[in-house]
């Protein structure tokens, strides 16, 4: 008798939670079914799409939809997206790192003010500043250039990046900095030879998170560029759908193609990506 109850309780402690398990699989269906449908449909010929069961994979998969998407200049949009993402995220993270280092190591009134000021950027919906930003970009004669997307993206990335990097740098033991100073290393040398390598995990995290934000951004390209040849991928999907709204397999091929690079990243560096996304928030 006693053995039975204690075993029952023991099982409870090992979390065989049936309702939770069932709910977990139901939620999986909610998440995965649309993705599954997107993927299989993107390989269906447009003709057989209407006659086939939408949930059964195509019997003769075709790459025609992907060919159509690429013929519609998606290779160029891909290059644009890469240029903007790389040119925005790398400077943003370098500048944020320098700022975070100064804020953590220094203690002047100006630095305390700076950190408060940057923190403000976290509380404010920066998208709401798009109209003055548009005016500034026009007056700088940058309208309809990739630089018009890069510069604000750098600025928008800074507050969260500084927060995450500063939190990480704060955990570096002071003795390490002291010994560098005693060895006669300059402040500048300490930044790049000690702090930077030590902060590498946090830097990877921030790089990936901000990269995802810029890569998937929609409002800045929509407002600050105009020429078709300057489109980034999210904007390209939108206009592609406007043009081929009836050709659903092709629209879905465009969706798959633009997500592919990030999916590859997810497969390679899932841990970094996930910790990147929860960084600064998952307190």
């Amino acid at each position: 008798m006693t053995t039975i109850t204690s075993r029952g309780r023991g099982r409870g402690r090992h979390h065989v939670n049936l309702p939770a398990g069932i709910a977990g699989w139901v939620w999986l269906a909610v998440i995965v079914l649309p993705l599954y449908w997107i993927l299989i449909t993107s390989f269906k010929p447009q003709a057989s799409y209407f006659t086939s069961n939408p949930l059964i994979p195509p019997t003769q998969p075709t790459f025609d939809n992907y060919r159509l998407v690429i013929e519609n200049d998606f290779d160029r949009y891909f290059v644009n997206s890469v240029i903007v993402t790389v040119c925005a995220v790398i400077p943003a993270v370098l500048l944020s790192f320098m700022a975070a280092f100064a804020i953590v190591r220094g203690n002047s009134r100006f630095l305390r003010f700076s950190s408060r000021f940057l923190l403000l950027g976290l509380a404010i919906p920066l998208q709401a500043t798009i109209i003055p930003l548009y005016l500034i970009i026009i007056r700088l004669h940058l309208y309809d250039t990739l630089l018009a997307l890069i510069l604000p993206s750098i600025a928008f990335s800074i507050p969260l990046s500084v927060l995450v990097l500063a939190n990480f740098l704060r955990d570096v033991p002071n003795e390490l900095f002291e010994s560098m100073r005693l060895d006669g290393t300059s402040e500048w040398g300490t930044v790049w030879r000690l702090a930077f390598p030590l902060t590498r995990p946090a830097i990877a995290t921030v790089l990936i998170y901000q990269g995802l934000v810029v890569w998937n951004g929609f409002l800045l390209p929509l407002v600050l560029t105009q020429s078709p040849n300057l489109r980034l991928l999210p904007l390209a999907i939108w206009s592609f759908q406007g043009q081929y709204s009836v050709n659903i397999p092709a629209v879905l091929a465009a969706v798959c193609l633009t997500t592919l690079p990030i999916l590859v990243l997810y497969v390679i560096g899932r841990r970094q990506l996930v910790s990147g996304l929860s960084a600064g928030f998952g307190k």
Binding site: L133, I136, L151, A155, P159
Partner: peptide, 12 residues
């Protein structure tokens, strides 16, 4: 960092 944020974040 401050200059960037000021010019494209705070000024707007």
């Amino acid at each position: 960092a401050l200059a960037f944020f000021t010019f494209f974040g705070a000024v707007p």
